[in-house]
Design a protein around this nucleic acid. Structure first.
Lengths: 162, 162
DNA sequence: GATTTTATGTCAACATCACTGACATATTTT
DNA sequence: AAAATATGTCAGTGATGTTGACATAAAATC
C-alpha cells in the first residue's frame, strides 16, 4: 500500500502542481490585463472614446509618421475597423495625416498637440501602475516579467520589441 | 557648457530610460495578451463561441458550484451581459445549474461533460503556450513574472489569487 | 505608354459583447 | 408583514470587430 500510494503521489502530484501553476498564470494574465486597461478607460470615458481609439493614439504616438498599413499590421484588425476609428480621431483633431512625399499613396500619421496631450495622460496613468508594481517587485522580477511576456509573443512582434 | 550638458544629461537620461522601459512594458502586455487570447479563439470559432463564453466556461470550471453573483464579481460585467452568454451555454448544454439547497435563491453553476471537454481543450492550448514560454525563461523569470502581475492586480483579486 | 500592383478609402450589412434602465419573481432576513 | 437579496428578463443602445465589393491614386513593371 505505501508503495502504491508513493508511486501514485510521485506521478500525480507534479502533474497536478504543473496544471495548477499554469492555471494560476492564466488567471494572473486575465486579472492583470483587465486592471491595466481599466486604468486608462476612466480617462477615455471623459474624452468620449474607447479602447480602440486608445490603441491607435498610443501606437501613432509611439511611431510618429507611421503609415496606415503598418498600423494595421500592429493592431491586427481590418482596415474597415481602423478606418472608422481613425476617421473619428481625425475629425476631432487628435490625429493628422500627411502624404509621404516619397510615395504619395502612403498617409503618414501624427498626433496633434491635442492628441499628444491625451496620449501623455493615458500613458502616464498606465506607467504609474506599472512603475508601482515594478518598484514593489524589484529589478530581478521585472526582468523575469519581461522575459516571460516576450516568450508568449509571436516571433515577428517579438523581434520588433526586443 | 560642459556643466550644463552634464547636468541635463544626468537629469534627462534616467527619466528617458525609465519612460522607455515603461513603454516597452505596456507594449509587452498588449502583444502578449493578444497572442495569448488568440490561441483560444481558434478553438472557440469551431464551436461557434466567443471570448465571453470562454471566460464563463473557464471560471465555472475553475470554481465548480460558483453562484451567478460570484461569477459577476469576477468578470465585472452586468448581469444582463452575463445572462445572455450563460443562457446560450445552458441551452447548448455546456453548463447546468442547480439551486443551492441552503439558499434556494442561488443558482450554482457546473460544467457538463461537454462543457468540461471544451474547457479542457481551451485551457490545454493556453497552458501549452505558457508552459513553453516558462520553459524558455526559466524558473526565476517565472517567479518574477508572477510577482509583477500580482502587483498590477487590485487588492481584492490579488488576495484571492495568492 | 499601357498594364498591373500597391496603399488607402468607402459603402453596406452583420455579429459580438458590453451598457443602462425598468420591472418581475422567489426566497431569505428582519 | 415588510424589507432585502439573488436572479432573471425585456427593451433599447453603443462600441468594436467582421466580410465582401468596389473606387481611386500612385508606383512599379512590362
Amino acid at each position: 500500500m505505501p508503495e502504491t500510494a508513493g508511486r501514485t503521489k510521485l506521478k500525480a502530484d507534479p502533474l497536478f502542481l504543473r496544471d495548477e501553476h499554469l492555471r494560476q498564470a492564466i488567471e494572473l494574465l486575465f486579472f492583470a490585463y483587465r486592471d491595466f486597461t481599466d486604468t486608462a478607460d476612466r480617462i477615455l470615458e471623459i474624452d468620449g472614446m474607447g479602447r480602440a481609439h486608445h490603441r491607435v493614439i498610443y501606437f501613432v504616438g509611439r511611431n510618429p509618421g507611421i503609415t496606415v498599413g503598418d498600423l494595421l499590421a500592429i493592431l491586427k484588425i481590418t482596415k474597415q475597423s481602423l478606418s472608422r476609428v481613425l476617421g473619428q480621431l481625425m475629425d476631432e483633431e487628435y490625429i493628422r495625416q500627411a502624404s509621404d512625399p516619397e510615395d504619395r499613396r502612403r498617409r503618414r500619421l501624427h498626433l496633434t498637440p491635442k492628441g499628444a496631450d491625451l496620449e501623455a495622460r493615458l500613458t502616464a496613468r498606465q506607467s504609474q501602475l506599472l512603475a508601482e508594481a515594478f518598484r514593489e517587485a524589484g529589478a530581478e522580477s521585472v526582468e523575469g516579467f519581461r522575459t516571460v511576456l516576450l516568450g508568449i509573443i509571436n516571433d515577428e512582434d517579438r523581434a520588433r520589441l526586443s
